[in-house]
Design a protein around this nucleic acid. Structure first.
Lengths: 254, 254
DNA sequence: ATCCGAATCCCAGTATCCGGAACATTGATT
DNA sequence: AATCAATGTTCCGGATACTGGGATTCGGAT
């Protein structure tokens, strides 16, 4: 009993945990009412009320017609993360140009807490995906990131997070992953062949600063119908490498 | 004593206030250390430590080499706000196209808590500005927003927030503001003539949904040298109105 | 006018947040 | 190599302020 296999769960400030539990609940559904949040979070009505009161007062949550919304203050906070490094902002332009030139989806992805985070994105109308987090091992860009780590770090990753099966093609065998990473290190780009979503292939390259610090991964992806072997292994790697090079140059000189 | 003229200050959950005070401090400076945060927030070392511990554990704050950073989790939260309405995402494309076509800065601005919030932006390398908040009365887009309100609401705004002087050109007289808003309602676009920043002029139009709900304001701005009267009062208003129309159409079909 | 659900408010009890101070660690300096 | 200063981490008693059950108010529907 109590051995849920769960992590610590209780360290630190539990009030803050409640606050963020509420924010997560708010994020998951548009314009939630207090009653709904009470239901969703298993917190008593008055607690929910008091917390929302505080968040609204601080301006982080917006109340309109009895419904509560995540406020724009978080955009400000998020932009801080998104522009933490100059390279991130430089990558924004690169992603856009890549998208325009190839007419496919393009993304810039960074690692945080052993997950792949979408930082910039081109393609389709919706912004969505930005800020989303996915497992590293199932994407071209994620594998490029893992390829930057040494074997011990990757082994830790496998131990801690594991290699979840996402599609039939996902690499779930540690040895296969190590081989794949070695391949990526050798040729300088990573490929994702329907490992993350069926029908989708992608190519990714690493992006470095002028001092060769690793920044993140630049990737293009699209439907298998358009992503032939030639395109994936020849044209795109070259194009991506050039763009990564441009970022480096931009960072070196204004 | 105690009559600081300060607002309430103490309702709700004060622990949450501390958490966000820390986050704000984190936002203002890159990679802060615990000691620095202690200094900056006037909270005891152990309190800062405990809060950061919690935030890190939750994944909202990142610790690297003893320095703390705002994490990407806030991007996720922020994107939720940024895509709260479909119209916001549709406006993203419009902003981009406007920027390309005019080769000037373009923005989409929305009101929250009686402030203008930058939601989308085109121009220059830096993302910065996105999520930033400015007073409504000093910008073309802000005035367009105020023009949507009725006189009573505007009067409340003036009472609550006031008409701060930002540049010599800022409208600080209530009557002048009411006149200006009437003018905007009449001709359907707003102009900012160095009211927000010297040397900068701008033009803005309102954006509506297919059911004529007000969404926000689309604007273009640039240096006085390039923003002649003709450009500002003829070409740009037309161009902007067309783009606002396109958004409406996008929302109605496709 | 009446009813019902939801939001808001209240208040006593105590969980838990706080913060001073001791201890550990890092790394810079001589 | 040894010392020292500064920062990070841990501990713990005490009281603040968070909690949550329940009462009250509000607002809309029948």
């Amino acid at each position: 009993m109590g051995t849920d296999g769960d992590e610590t769960g209780g360290t630190g400030v539990s009030t803050t945990r409640k606050t963020f539990a509420l924010l997560e609940a708010l994020k998951d559904e548009e314009g939630v009412t207090i009653a709904a949040l009470t239901e969703r979070t298993d917190l008593p009505k008055s607690t929910v009320y008091r917390h929302l009161q505080t968040l609204t007062d601080l301006g982080y949550v917006i109340e309109r017609d009895g419904a509560y919304y995540v406020g724009f203050r978080f955009v400000e906070l998020g932009e801080q993360a998104r522009s933490r490094k100059v390279g991130y902002t430089a990558a924004k332009r690169a992603v856009f140009e890549l998208g325009q030139e190839t007419d496919e989806r393009a993304v810039f992805i960074v690692e945080e807490a052993s997950e792949a985070v979408y930082v910039h994105r081109y393609g389709s109308l919706s912004n969505t995906m930005i800020g989303h987090r996915r497992p590293l091992h199932s994407m071209a860009s994620g594998k490029v990131i893992l390829a930057e780590w040494d074997d011990a770090a990757v082994a830790d990753y496998i131990d801690d997070i594991g290699l979840e099966t996402i599609t039939p093609n996902t690499i779930t065998d540690p040895d296969a992953l190590f081989d794949e990473l070695e391949r990526i290190r050798g040729r300088g780009y990573g490929v994702n062949n329907q490992e993350h979503m069926e029908g989708l292939r992608g190519v990714a390259v690493p992006v470095y600063t002028p001092d060769d610090d690793f920044l993140g991964s630049l990737a293009v992806f699209g439907p298998t119908s358009r992503f032939s072997d030639d395109y994936v292994h020849d044209e795109l790697p070259t194009r991506l490498r050039n763009k990564a090079g441009e970022i480096k140059v931009t960072l070196a000189y204004g």
